[in-house]
Amino acid sequence: MTLLYTGLAVFLLLNLLVGLMRVYFGPTAADRMLAALLFGTTTVAVLLLLAEAMALSALRDVALLFTLLAAVVALAFTRLPRRFKGR
């Protein structure tokens, strides 16, 4: 099983890195934020897999923190000013 976990972790990490293109090219701020959120989820999955693969249960706590605080960034993002409406 460990091999599977590791392989999946590699696969998810690769997904994440490929997805970075969306952050790079945008085009809107919302696109970038979306990608960032997806990566948050991906990271949680990676951490869960690593917790099993490395037999480090504390990594689940890390994943827990990520999910708990995932909304903070999104909220901070939407608190950006409305001023660039129409640009």
Partner: peptide, 13 residues
């Protein structure tokens, strides 16, 4: 938690 956060985040964005 992820479900909840993702829902709200998607909505907000």
């Amino acid at each position: 938690l992820a479900q909840l956060a993702a829902t709200v985040s998607a909505h907000l964005i």
